[in-house]
Design a protein around this nucleic acid. Structure first.
Lengths: 205, 205
DNA sequence: ATAAAAAGTCCGATATTTCGGACAATTAAT
DNA sequence: ATTAATTGTCCGAAATATCGGACTTTTTAT
């Protein structure tokens, strides 16, 4: 489970309070006091979520939002709004914020939102990982001469058979449906040694 | 994007109001008035989320929650609680509810929660699909005789070469590093016909 | 309509692979 | 320590695959 929460809050007292809150819940707060300071942490594969105040000097929460969205559209941003500032909160959501939290914040509510956001982030990252893995598998366009490709596959098949049979050549040959001599022929050609597939430590002496 | 929302609400007026709300937002409400009625829709791969009232005769929202969790732990359930019934809401979340919504419901707030829940559901389902695909690929333990496995692979390689070259045998042969005659030998043996790999409609006449 | 190119087929000499038998070297079991 | 089984290597005849040439048929381009 992801646990990082990048906090962007200029009010030192509030910021420390939040940090303490998160630490109590076994999360990993990263405490910053401004967009500028937080900026370098906001990367595409950040393994966590962002919790930012909206009203801040120089750069406000919307700047954070815009920047983070550019870096990674699926990075959940939770914005801290003033009490019952519904208009701003709504705008934030429309702009792509994951959720908002009214100040003064309620601990339980913050945790609910954060856990949802962290889970969301985890799903997104896992999804990307799966997608990448699948793409990698599919894009391996078979290349090279027929003989090369066949030899590669032959090696794989034979090695697997040997592995399954713990390096016993006669058994592997049976499994492959060829006489052991023939298997030896192949192994010689491919420079496969059966010994390499036997248990090094079957029983401790 | 997923759009189904299974509504479980015994108050007819409120239920219809919600249905209307969702239809306005281009979602697909499934309207039911009781757990019993909704039950059959709650399946493991339900492509949507559940929005259920808590306080209902016979079976309440927690029954829905328990049942749905058993069917699919990653199926988001949003519970409708009475106004500022914080205790119940908190319990619901602890029990695995995705979120809760206070009655009387605010349209914007409902939509925010639903869109998050639907997105969450979509990610979960996508994740499962990816995982299944990867598992399927990995678990294909090579079995059968050496000759069989080699022939299968040979077929794959040749067919891919033909596909890439649009069914042109001479080109495919070049790509595979063998004389075209030899490729014909292989194709004859494997009963592969080049025609099958040519564009049926290269240019519209 | 004609020419050029590619698709398919068949043949046969040459090259490679298969596979059983035989045997020495190891390893495991009694 | 002796036996039995397994490993690993070599041999050679039979089976199979390769590959170029020749030829007919079909497509494609002009």
């Amino acid at each position: 489970m992801l646990k990082k929460v990048l906090i962007i809050e200029d009010d030192t007292a509030l910021r420390n309070s939040i940090v303490q809150s998160l630490e109590l819940e076994d999360l990993e707060p990263i405490s910053t006091s401004s967009f500028t300071q937080a900026r370098r942490s906001i990367r595409s594969n950040f393994r966590g979520v962002i919790l930012s105040d909206i009203k801040m000097p120089v750069h406000d929460g919307f700047d954070v939002l815009r920047f983070a969205q550019a870096r990674d559209p699926d990075l959940p941003i939770i914005l801290l709004t003033g009490y019952s500032d519904v208009a701003t909160a709504t705008k934030a959501l429309k702009d792509g914020a994951y959720d908002y939290l009214e100040k003064p914040y309620d601990h339980e509510r913050l945790m609910d939102i954060l856990s949802r956001a962290l889970e969301h982030r985890e799903l997104v990252l896992q999804n990307r990982a799966y997608r990448d893995e699948l793409d990698a598998q599919k894009s391996k366009t078979a290349t090279g001469t027929l003989a090369e490709q066949m030899e590669m596959h032959e090696r794989k098949v034979i090695e697997q058979a040997l592995a399954v049979e713990n390096g016993k050549v006669v058994e592997a040959a049976k499994r492959l449906g060829i006489p052991r001599n023939t298997l030896y022929d192949h192994m010689t050609r491919l420079r496969i040694v059966a010994k390499a597939f036997r248990d090094k430590a079957p029983t401790a002496k």
